[in-house]
Design a protein around this nucleic acid. Structure first.
Lengths: 186, 186
DNA sequence: TTGCGTTATGTACGTTTGTACGCATAAGTC
DNA sequence: GACTTATGCGTACAAACGTACATAACGCAA
């Protein structure tokens, strides 16, 4: 009775609702951009009533902030997992190459979300900690295999190469990436 | 009589109006983001009546497109000018260092605009040519001093370092940048 | 002057927006 | 069962939106 108890059309008791709304928010942002993200569109995507929006989130900005935070946490998780597997420095270098071009789960959707995040943070300084936190985690993962200076350069290169490859299909090939990583980490 | 002839409150004949609207658009985007850029806000910023918006631009998207195009042209111009001065490879390397951290005129405002552009292009594939055109010009400038492969890597590094330095104040120092450029261009 | 064609603008319209809030419905307690 | 409290939601509203369009203001030819 407690579970599955949807007694007709109008739903009740849906403990994952808030999480689902956040996920739906990312979906809407990916397709419509922050500029096209509205309470109503997210509500429809998450299949919840409009009233749930203002009930679970103080404002639209609050919703965006939480959605972007979840995005960075997911990415950080993937990033960490990839580097956790690497044992030797050479293996770590290969992971960097993987991330630079191809990425494990860097779909167009995720890349779009990241760029929306950047723009959002640039215009909302009070959410900058979302970025600095993410960057710190990435740096930390890299510094388990490289010196701080090299880690910083690899991090920047990952950023730039990922964006350039996204914007211009055949930007940096896998072989080219290998050469670059070798140079930077020497 | 033809110039300065504002015969009271309601203006007439203002040949630079379109250009001024585009500039005002960039100003609004920088502060409010694409999501907060409206006909009315731009009109106020440019000090033109609302009707001028739909008169000079087919739609809001058309306006955004033209504004972003102007942004990339300005940046390209600065970029080219900087590299035009460099005669030797070493001088070119130093320009790359300049651009990576500090940039000639890379204010927070301009960086914000660039990030908004990225997000906009990611969501509007039909405007991707604005990005590919810009990238081609940058690549071209770099290839006057470096091999294609090295130019591509420097371009990506500039991208990543600029963004990281913007997000996290003391990301890559000038000395560190010099080391990185030396490695990449060897 | 008058007339005409182009250029520009004020205004109105139908939508969509974020958000507030009264009320319905559940769980909790006896 | 009855009653109380906490939780969730349908709905309403003022503000702001993009856009269209009738009409005003001009330059210019006659």
């Amino acid at each position: 009775m407690t579970a599955e108890g949807s007694s007709g059309g109008n739903r009740r008791y849906d403990p994952d609702r808030k999480a689902r709304i956040i996920e739906a928010t990312l979906e809407v942002i990916a397709v419509q951009g922050v500029s096209g993200t509205t309470h109503r569109r997210v509500a429809e995507a998450a299949d919840v009533p409009l009233g749930s929006m203002t009930y679970h989130f103080a404002s639209l900005n609050d919703l965006l902030k939480q959605a972007f935070l979840k995005l960075t946490q997911e990415i950080t998780h993937h990033f960490d997992a990839a580097f956790q597997k690497a044992q030797t420095a050479d293996e770590a270098r290969e992971v960097v190459v993987d991330v630079m071009c191809g990425w494990y789960a860097m779909t167009d959707r995720k890349m779009t979300l990241i760029l929306e995040l950047y723009a959002y943070v640039a215009r909302n300084p009070q959410t900058r900690h979302v970025m600095t936190g993410w960057m710190a985690k990435s740096r930390e993962a890299l510094e388990r295999h490289f010196s701080p200076a090299v880690a910083a350069s690899l991090d920047a290169m990952i950023e730039g190469a990922t964006i350039h490859n996204f914007m211009h299909p055949d930007g940096i090939s896998r072989d080219a990436a290998r050469v670059i990583v070798a140079k930077l980490s020497s």
